[in-house]
Amino acid sequence: MRRFYWSLVLVPLAVLAVLYLYPLATVLWLSVTEPRPGLQNFSRLVESAALQRILWNTARISIITTAIALVVGYAIAYALVHMDGRRRAIMLGALLASFWLSVLIRSFAWLTLLQSRGVVNSTLMGMGLIDAPIPLVRNEFGVVLGMVHYMIPYAALPMYASMQAMDLRLVPAARSLGASRWQSFRRVFLPLSLPGVFSAGVLCFIFSLGFYVTPALLGGGRVIMIAEYIAVQIQETLNWGLGTMLATTLLLSVLLLLAAVSRIVDVRAMFGAK
């Protein structure tokens, strides 16, 4: 009887082991064996100034992206919980539509708008407001804009879910006891919503660390984050040792971060798995 249910679990597990865990293990293995066994690939993290710049770029852009996405996402989540049904359905629908739209199409749209001969620059030049195109992409501004745009729904939806689960009657209760609108937000609503903000922030940050398509298109080779750098190592310079070492570093950073926050938040709930 239980054997039947174990077989339901073990068959998918076997497939996962061959088609996912084995490839993943290969990456970890290569990082310490290619071109020869040892930790020399990892020692480049301390030695190479170029690598440190890539890592710093990745961390900085991810932090900025997460911070902006959280603030903007909080605003829309806050608006959503205070809205009546019909308007809420429309706003939620718009949020979901942008959530479902592929990262490639979004980056392409931003490129169309922002590149030097793009819609924004040619319109401004046509109106005589500027003489030369303003550099809006192929720089950090473009990358952060594209990433924030992608991350807002990822930040807003979990915060909205956690705000919905709060006891919203506490805010009018605080008001009736004499708190100002600001005080009731600052001392009641905001503290109650912070756990949701925290897990949305962790989610955004770990997704941002691994971003590839947006930085590649909107950074135009000038703003390089770790994922694009790894792809270049494998596809162009065939440097498997360096590529897998950086991939391992990226993976371990994500897993360690999750392990660290798992003491505070339920990681499974963060990914919707509970």
Binding site: L13, I206, A231
Partner: peptide, 26 residues
């Protein structure tokens, strides 16, 4: 079984470029 379930969540936790390398090699 809960541990196995966590293991099966890995493909959405692991950054795409990391498992892309593994798929390629395998």
């Amino acid at each position: 079984s809960e541990f196995i379930r966590m293991l099966m969540l890995l493909p959405i936790i692991v950054p795409a470029v990391v498992h892309a390398l593994g798929f390629y090699r395998a």
